[in-house]
Design a binder for these strands. Structure first.
Lengths: 362, 362
DNA sequence: GCGACCCATGGCAGCGCTGCCAATTTGTGG
DNA sequence: CCACAAATTGGCAGCGCTGCCATGGGTCGC
């Protein structure tokens, strides 16, 4: 339609087509610019800019005239040009492992909720739990010159870390709480959380826990949780073997939970409580047990992680760890906001905590 | 840390700090630019650009030298400047009603999956089912000069439609299938889908269906579904009153489904099959009925919409309509891709279809 | 042996906006 | 009535990159 890259041939035929049409070099956008509005309003382009960005510096009269011209021309400010000129893009880059996982969707929601009212837009990319892809995405996202960067997890490639440090923009890492973050961190201690629920389970009288989850490389949060389980068992149940069943890179869905539950029953029949790395898996297991007739919690206890909505509706209701996903997003948003506006804001570390929720399943 | 906007005072003290440091005007980015790389490599900036964008036009030797200089300087191309100069932003704007709703997350996933490999990044905004907010977001998103636009739904304000038409970029509307779309449309017919499941239910022998869902203004898909139900009942069960229970703007979560189910039992005890606008509601109702002892499907049939994973795991397994959410995303991505690259690509209308899935709940 | 041609590289201008400063107008007090 | 300050507006340059064209040097053919 716009015939880009066509060169000048054919130009004569389209001469004088629509009277007032502006210059039509092959590069122009064909969309009204600030200058067009300025011409229409009889002011300088700069005044249009002021009308938009610092209206208090423009007389009431001029302000209204310019606004009318904006409406008349259908002008939509080009934020790309604005970014280049002002060195502020009003965007925040967001890197998450997977878009369609509900926990990350919650964080996105939280971030958007906080940043959107301040005019920031979100650039979202998913890394698929692949650190190299994360590095690649980090690089191109930084090319967009975002004003802030949110990234899930604290384990990155050396280059990713380096790029982020170099970028000189506020960075917030979500979820884990590392000792030496790039910028700010918002999350909770997976170690403490797993320890807490293991302790709760031991206090309930269970003695033979098995941990099950999808512990894929690259998903440090999952790795951390399984390590924490190991630590907790060694501490709380000395002498007890550490049983961990790993679904690898399987999707986090009910079906995987069912499979895991079958594997645990087969491989570790001595298990008296089955602890999952996610409520989704735990719910899947409960569905499985409902059908296969395993009585929960009488024969076998089950715990989850995350306190998703299903945890309190399924029966038996799920004992789990509640984690404030949404709050991670909103807190991260707030930190970014401060980092982007306050010149000497120091990175912070926010522990949003967690809570063991005891229900019927264990 | 970077002391931005500091002006020139204090400059002398930081003189000659790091030897090779570049000019430090208050406006500079302090990040290496193409010129820096060019200087380092002893070539012209244009050659650096070519190395990055059209490497086949550069000699092997030069290519490698420039690549080394890029690595040495830590250069990250500024895509903002690139966008402005080339009039292509390599971004796609995405407007969805709610980020954390799993169906929309699936579409996002599909879109990203298709577009990301081609270098496009996604700008995501949520409208909260509010058409005015949608208009506002459309305006500012267009300011980012995206190369393509994806928007959920086909009912927009007049201005939104106008803006999108004016934008002269490929637009894809998702979900509904309107007669006169802005650009392409990808979706399925809610009318046909609701009709089909109603028919299936009638064929099973149910005679007194009640429809329940959250039919908020602005959510045209929900409105459409409830209207379709009305049509289907009039056609398939002439004389039968049309019962619709509306949760309004309540969240789409299990709890709302439970409430709806209680309301239906109270307000329309004659109901023999309860048809929900979402599997989430239906699952919530099943949880409720499990506890209150209502036998499904013996006493009461239940159907959902969406065929979420829970539908086949919950017991009784849920009769529902399967909708290819992910496919909507990937198809939309493909259409956008073609629209953005093929000069005279004509908008298309893609019906991704649906499927009634009969299970035990009805 | 010289124009035709190709490949690789360089130079210029400009994308649409903003930061900064200058210029102009208007108001104020002595 | 004039110096001075405040309120508005305009002009210039430049953000970092790309499109286009020009340039230089080498190869080819007759």
């Amino acid at each position: 339609m716009t015939g880009r890259g066509e060169g000048p041939h054919g130009a004569p035929s389209s001469d004088g087509e629509a009277g007032d049409r502006r210059r039509l070099t092959s590069r122009s956008t064909l969309r009204p610019t600030m200058s067009d509005v300025a011409r229409h309003a009889g002011v300088a382009p700069q005044t249009v800019s002021r009308t938009l960005r610092t209206p208090h510096l423009v007389s009431r009269e001029t302000y209204e005239r310019v606004q009318r011209s904006i409406a008349a021309t259908g002008y939509v400010p080009n934020l790309t040009a604005s970014s280049l000129a002002s060195n502020r893009s009003m965007t925040v880059a967001v890197l998450i492992p997977a878009i369609s996982t509900s926990i990350f969707a919650d964080v996105l929601h939280g971030l958007d909720e906080v940043l959107s009212p301040h005019g920031y837009h979100l650039f979202i990319g998913s890394t698929d739990y692949d650190l190299d892809q994360e590095e690649q995405l980090t690089r191109t996202f930084l090319g967009r010159r975002p004003d802030g960067f949110f990234i899930v997890g604290t384990a990155h490639t050396e280059t990713t870390t380096h790029l982020l440090l170099q970028s000189a923009i506020p960075v917030v890492e979500g979820w884990s709480l590392t000792p030496n973050p790039i910028g700010s961190v918002v999350g909770f201690s997976n170690i403490a959380a797993v320890h807490a629920i293991t302790q709760a389970v031991v206090e309930k009288g269970y003695r033979h826990p098995t941990f099950a989850g999808s512990i894929r490389e690259g998903d440090t949060r999952a790795v951390e949780r399984s390590k924490s389980f190991e630590l907790a068992v060694r501490e709380l149940l000395p002498g007890e073997p550490v049983r961990i069943v790993n679904a690898g890179a399987r999707e986090v869905e009910f079906e995987t939970g069912r499979e895991l539950s079958r594997r645990v029953l087969a491989e570790h029949p001595e298990t008296d409580v089955l602890m999952f790395s996610s409520d989704i898996f735990a719910a899947g297991a409960l569905f499985e047990f409902q059908q296969s007739g395993v009585k929960v919690p009488e024969q076998l206890g089950v715990t989850g992680f995350g306190d998703f909505e299903i945890a309190r509706h399924i029966s038996p209701a799920l004992t789990t760890v509640a984690v404030p996903n949404r709050a991670i997003g909103t807190e991260a948003g707030r930190l970014l906001l401060r980092g982007m506006t306050e010149p000497d804001f120091m990175p912070q570390r926010i522990d949003v905590g967690f809570e063991v929720v005891l229900r019927q399943s264990a």
